[in-house]
């Protein structure tokens, strides 16, 4: 199953809602799409809504870690919200769960970002 990414730009925040299956086959095109979006729209923060992501493996972790490192370089933040238990487990295993901001909803993620700015 393909991975769909719904992107919404709110100021300097890029809100990404991912659904379907995020694997190596899918990360290539998505990485390119995100790079284009982030450059053109002067994005500084990302909110990742993974509520509808049904499958992810370490290729997905690599993609997300890559965007996280980029945001760190430009002084931005990444907030993870609504990941399913299976997806959350992978973040925990990789140690990323501890370094990312985690919130239960998009609204909370947005206010968290406003608070740190």
């Amino acid at each position: 199953m393909a991975c769909r990414v719904e992107a919404e730009v709110k100021g300097s925040v890029l809100l990404l809602r991912m659904s379907g299956e995020l694997d190596h086959h899918e990360v290539g095109p998505i990485r390119k799409e995100l790079a284009d979006l982030m450059e053109s729209d002067s994005i500084r923060h990302i909110i990742l809504n993974l509520a509808k992501l049904e499958f992810m493996d370490s290729s997905g972790l690599g993609l997300i870690l890559g965007r996280y490192k980029y945001l760190q370089k430009i002084g931005g933040n990444m907030v993870l919200c609504a990941a399913t238990p299976t997806v959350k487990r992978l973040f925990e295993m990789s140690g990323m769960y501890k370094i990312l901001m985690v919130e239960i909803s998009e609204e909370r993620a947005l206010s968290r970002l406003e608070a740190v700015q």
């Binding site: 990485r31 690599g62 870690l65 990789s94």
Partner: peptide
């Protein structure tokens, strides 16, 4: 090893074997 990858250029996370073992 966790986080080891020979392809950091491809943005690999190096977590594949760790996940399999888990």
């Amino acid at each position: 090893q966790p986080l080891y990858t020979s392809r950091p250029d491809m943005e690999r996370s190096g977590m594949g074997f760790t996940i399999m073992e888990h």
